[in-house]
Simulated scan of single mutants.
Amino acid sequence: MIQVVAAAVIWGLVLCILPGVRNRKDHTILIAAVAIATALSLNVDPIYIAGDALLGGRNLLDLCANVLMVVGIYSLSQAILRAAEFNDASVRRDGLGMTILSFVVLGLAAAFFSIEAPVSSTRFMLDYGSQPAAALYSSIQFAYIGIVVGLTGYVCFRFRRRMATIHFRLAFTLIGIGCTLALVVVFAVLGMDIAHVLGDLGTMQRLAVAYDVSFVGAMLFLCAGLALPPVARRMSRRIDVRTREGLLNSLTETWEKATANRKDIRLATAARGVERGDASTRKLHRMLVEIQDALLMDPSAAELLDEADRQTVSRTEVFLASHHSAQGSRLSPSVWGRTRGINDR
């Protein structure tokens, strides 16, 4: 049941990341989420039994799932660490990290093939974990995961206050909490591995409770933190579109009043309807400039404007100023919300 819940949560994260994927050059988080979600899904009993049977029924699917898990954790960590960097080297190769990951995968394979596990089992470590090779197999995986999430959590807590917006700061905080809970998972698993080899079933059961609670908590916090930036961006864009639409409708009336006697400076086309994206913002800007020019050249035109018109002009000025600021500091999806960064790619 734990695996089903965790897999569902991670697949939910994938669905949150997918919209707008074509506009992003860095798909590391998506790749990591898919890898982790697939690894967890492969451990769901019916899927594991059917999949392992296709591979010969000797638990090779467990090795495949664990390799996918460490690859996903590595990719996820790289994406988060790049998000916390303050330079333009976010796409550089992590040679050392890839080398360590390769050795971890080789170690997992070597330990796995030393385990006597002739029958496919959905409780692999419970059935075969008393073997030292099985304990080594599990320990390699979780020791690596512990080091990676420990470093990632440290970076999240250290740099969260440097994020440009509150939702990025909250995202880093949630990810940091998720990494902390993931460390609890790691220590619980390592403890269970040792207890199993020693035959201490009581300790195993107590650690299993800590494992279940912390595992679900880690998945929830990590996914919430990773899903927050893309969801917040989409919500912000929708609010931005609605705001532009309202301002265009309101400012058009003000524009027509202010420029009634100076039609020579008007827009080449009527300001009807709402265009998407930057086109509507440019139209707002031009209308505002024409209103200001009309008032400057003919002060009597101000008498044609009422308080509502002046408030509309003021709101438009504030919106355009904030929009210009956001455009100037907009960041690549690969680096989320850091205070200093590079423009959208």
Rank of each mutant, 00 (worst) to 15 (best):
L267M: 03
L42R: 03
D193M: 04
A89R: 13
L42S: 11
S300T: 14
R123N: 10
G107P: 03
D306T: 09
M1V: 10
T316L: 05
L226D: 01
I36S: 09
A135T: 06
F172K: 08
A134E: 06
A268W: 05
A50P: 05
G56Q: 08
V335S: 13
R282A: 04
R233T: 08
L304W: 01
D127N: 02
G176E: 07
S139C: 10
G56F: 06
V105W: 04
G191S: 05
V213T: 11
G277C: 05
I31W: 14
K263S: 08
V105N: 07
D52E: 12
C223W: 01
I265K: 00
F142I: 15
K283H: 02
L251W: 02
I73S: 06
L183G: 12
I115T: 07
R330K: 12
A6Q: 09
L76A: 09
A301K: 04
L248A: 07
A301P: 03
E303A: 09
D306S: 05
P299K: 02
V104T: 14
Y211C: 01
R24P: 02
A279V: 15
Q327V: 06
R234Y: 03
S280Y: 11
A50D: 14
Q78V: 05
E256V: 11
N249P: 00
L54A: 14
N343V: 01
D298Y: 05
F113M: 10
T281D: 06
A188R: 06
A171Y: 09
A37N: 01
A109G: 10
A135I: 07
I47G: 07
K25W: 00
H27T: 13
R161D: 09
A171W: 04
S314C: 10
M287I: 05
P333Q: 13
V189M: 08
R161S: 12
L101A: 11
G191T: 02
D127L: 05
A260L: 10
L220A: 05
G341L: 01
T243D: 11
L267E: 04
T312N: 11
G51D: 11
D26A: 03
G225Q: 03
L96F: 13
R161E: 10
G341F: 01
R82M: 01
A270C: 04
V197C: 00
L305Q: 07
R161K: 13
L284Y: 01
M163H: 03
Q3T: 12
V105E: 10
R310V: 06
R242H: 13
A134I: 09
S139I: 12
